[in-house]
């Protein structure tokens, strides 16, 4: 794919991000719930003046269209605004948490693929056998249970009972990791910190299983059905006729071709994993973006929700783009 096309596609993300932000902006201001009320809590006295002052600080006393104008003009300058409750710029809040979310998404994707690939290939090769049914049933197990429930059960078994893996957090406090990118495993490798690598890996496993097991089913079934289709194609029959061994046929010819539809699904799942992890993040006290957004929704922290949703929209567009790039790589016949 040519670079120009990639840039073009990235630019196409802008109207989507903007549209998403405006929808959230209008939606949040039309619905009940006053951020100032929530901020003040119960303690002490709150004077009318104090409430008014906070309102005007947040521009909540102005008509919606004026607020929207202010928001858009800030946005044009690249300013996402400041969080109501956290007294910090939204961009820095999101920036601090994004690496944790990305790390978890990739951990989950890895676990998902680790389960999906053997299952998908085996069940296609042994279609309708007991193995096929068993393994597909197992693959579907992950998608059939609420992730928080799976997470808590994993914690109780592997952390509380067996003491194999930690309950919560991203890394041990005394691992002495020097952060570079915020992706702890990558940072451990970059700084050559072995204990930190082991520690962050151990912390990543359980949340990745809780989140990634749902991906396994989706990927496995796509892989299985595309493999089934390909294994019957003339192309594979030809390879067989040429006397290639079954393993070679499957691994070399069929799987590569089956990867094309699989990659599409995987790409979409990356978006889902990045935007659907708030529950697993809460269960494992994973300091990521999802938890931050849910908290912001409950606190009516308008700027934070707007900013985060724009980030999600960007991730979604970017994931689609990556899928398309991979597509052309796997199948050079396709032009964008």
């Amino acid at each position: 794919m040519r670079l120009v096309k990639v840039i073009e596609r990235l630019l196409a993300a802008i109207p989507i991000m903007l549209g998403v932000a405006v929808i959230v902006f209008v939606f949040m201001r039309m619905t009940p719930g006053d951020p100032v009320d929530i901020m003040m809590g119960q303690g002490g006295t709150v004077s009318e003046g104090e409430v008014e002052r906070l309102r005007s600080e947040f521009n909540l006393d102005k008509p919606i269209h004026v607020q929207l104008g202010l928001f858009l003009s800030d946005l044009a300058r690249g300013d996402l605004g400041n969080s109501f409750t956290k007294q910090q710029p939204v961009a820095s809040l999101i920036g601090e948490r994004l690496p944790a979310t990305i790390e978890l998404a990739f951990g989950s994707l890895f676990i998902g693929l680790l389960i999906a690939f053997p299952i998908g290939i085996l069940s296609a090769v042994k279609q309708n056998s007991l193995l096929d049914r068993l393994s597909m049933g197992a693959a579907f197990l992950g998608i059939s249970m609420p992730s928080f429930w799976l997470g808590i059960i994993l914690i109780l078994i592997f952390s509380v009972k067996l003491h194999w893996l930690p309950v919560q957090g991203r890394i041990d406090y005394d691992a002495g990791l020097q952060t570079v990118t915020g992706l702890y495993m990558l940072d451990s490798i970059l700084t050559g910190n072995g204990p930190a690598l082991i520690s962050s890996l151990k912390h990543l496993i359980l949340p990745s299983i809780a989140l990634g097991s749902a991906v396994a089913a989706i990927v496995a079934r796509v892989l299985r059905s595309s493999l089934l289709e390909i294994l019957r194609s003339d192309y594979v029959k030809l390879a067989r006729a040429k006397g290639a061994g079954e393993t070679t046929v499957v691994m070399k010819h069929a799987v590569r071709n089956a990867l094309i539809p699989t990659v599409t699904v995987v790409g979409l799942q990356v978006g889902v994993l990045l935007g659907g992890n708030m529950i697993v993040e809460t269960v494992f006290s994973w300091p990521g973006l999802g938890r931050l957004v849910v908290e912001a929704i409950f606190n009516r922290d308008f700027p934070l929700v707007q900013g985060a949703v724009m980030v999600y929209a960007f991730i979604f567009v970017a994931a689609n783009l990556v899928v398309d790039v991979l597509y052309t790589y796997l199948n050079p016949k396709i032009e964008m």
């Binding site: 619905t31 935007g275 929704i297 929209a313």
Partner: peptide, 19 residues
């Protein structure tokens, strides 16, 4: 496309929180 760009769960949480 616009709706697809919202993560499903965030969207549902938002709607439920407001309604």
């Amino acid at each position: 496309d616009l709706l697809m760009a919202f993560p499903f769960l965030i969207f549902a949480i938002g709607v439920m929180a407001f309604m």
